[in-house]
Design a protein around this nucleic acid. Structure first.
Lengths: 207, 207
DNA sequence: ATCTGGCTCAAACGATCGTTTGAATCATAG
DNA sequence: CTATGATTCAAACGATCGTTTGAGCCAGAT
């Protein structure tokens, strides 16, 4: 977690991401972050202005790439089937987890952000994330013509929760020692797509 | 939120529940709690020993009733269909939200607890919650004979996440002003059951 | 009326919080 | 080499954190 071969700025971001994932935004202090990153305490305020500035930058640097990957995958999947579109949404989050330093922590940080009803953070995420969700919603609407607009939104809301929770690995299932982290997460994605596709395809609710 | 007509102990619990839901365990201070409850600061340590003791009591007083209601509903639903069993799991959480002071906040606190990877809290929840989940898992296993043990556990893990997030109302759907809080949450339950039942019934994953 | 135990109170404890300061250090351009 | 702007540093700021203390209050029992 120390990442001593990176720049001060990058070390702070990496460590902050991991500690925010583990202890929350309020629960992880700047002194913990800077001590773990082997960096001076004042470096956070120098590079990011404030703790809130650090939090926003933790999101920004990952969301940019995540959004790009999701939209690229969506473009390829738009005229295929439901499972492929779900895969386009879910797999980039998995790739972040596997191919980038501490990316697994970021998915957890993202899930925490949902739990924070903090208005400032929600607006920030909506500004930097909303257009991606809206594009996916349009494709889902086309693939699920049996659902009314209201019903579709409910389904997507439930889907977002299930995906967030599952990718953040909040669940009770313990990865077996024999199974690698990568294999475990690939299984999570596979089961998630199966579950979500069936949930979205279900006939309209009676209520 | 002040609840001035209750005892000191109950006022603290009610206010703590609401503030933990909104700001998290680390984010809500005892000074906020006691000031909002119009109670002396030292009362928390007097009645609950410590902040951690307060957190545990916030869970205990609601979980006892929630567990009881869920198991009672499960006993009635055990020999019916999947939707009824899902209802037995989900509806008690809804009832807590509607019929008890600040119960809606508790569901949010419970969802936050999932995000905390704090070992102490997880063990506490496992001790006071695990047997209920295990009983439901047995019934689900009987109702879903097409799923292997491994596959079933994955589905239930995803289900738990979807239920937790949806009931905590973390999603993006805004309740319309014309819709009452009660009606909104009943809709959430209804859509959740439809989605979850279809997700659980889906054929085994190819992976 | 006095004693007693449960409870509340203001006040303070040391620790830790996010942030700021100003000097020291570094790399780079002139 | 010197000058300059960027970065790092130790130290301290006031505020707030969870917790403890000991005096005071207020019942109900003796």
């Amino acid at each position: 977690m120390a990442q001593t071969n990176f720049s001060t700025r990058e070390r702070i971001l990496g460590v902050a991401e991991a500690l925010f994932a583990r202890h929350g935004f309020a629960g992880a202090s700047l002194r913990q972050v800077t001590a773990t990153a082997k960096v001076n305490l004042a470096a956070v305020n120098y590079h990011f202005g404030s703790k809130d500035g650090l939090i926003e930058e933790v999101f920004r640097r990952r969301l940019d790439e995540l959004n790009r990957e999701r939209l690229a995958a969506l473009a390829k999947a738009a005229n295929t089937d439901l499972e492929t579109v779900l895969d386009a949404f879910i797999r980039p989050a998995l790739n972040q987890s596997l191919h980038s330093q501490g990316g697994a922590a970021f998915v957890r940080v993202l899930a925490r952000a949902y739990a924070e009803h903090d208005e400032r953070l929600r607006r920030f995420l909506s500004d930097n994330y909303g257009h991606v969700l809206r594009e996916f919603a349009q494709v889902f609407a086309r693939l699920l013509p049996h659902l009314g607009k209201e019903e579709l939104y409910w389904r997507l809301d439930i889907l977002a929760g299930a995906v967030t929770y599952a990718m953040a690995d909040f669940g009770i299932i313990k990865r077996r020692a024999a199974t690698s982290e990568e294999s475990h997460r690939r299984q999570a994605v596979s089961h998630l797509i199966t579950f979500a596709a069936a949930g979205l395809r279900a006939p309209p609710s009676p209520g």
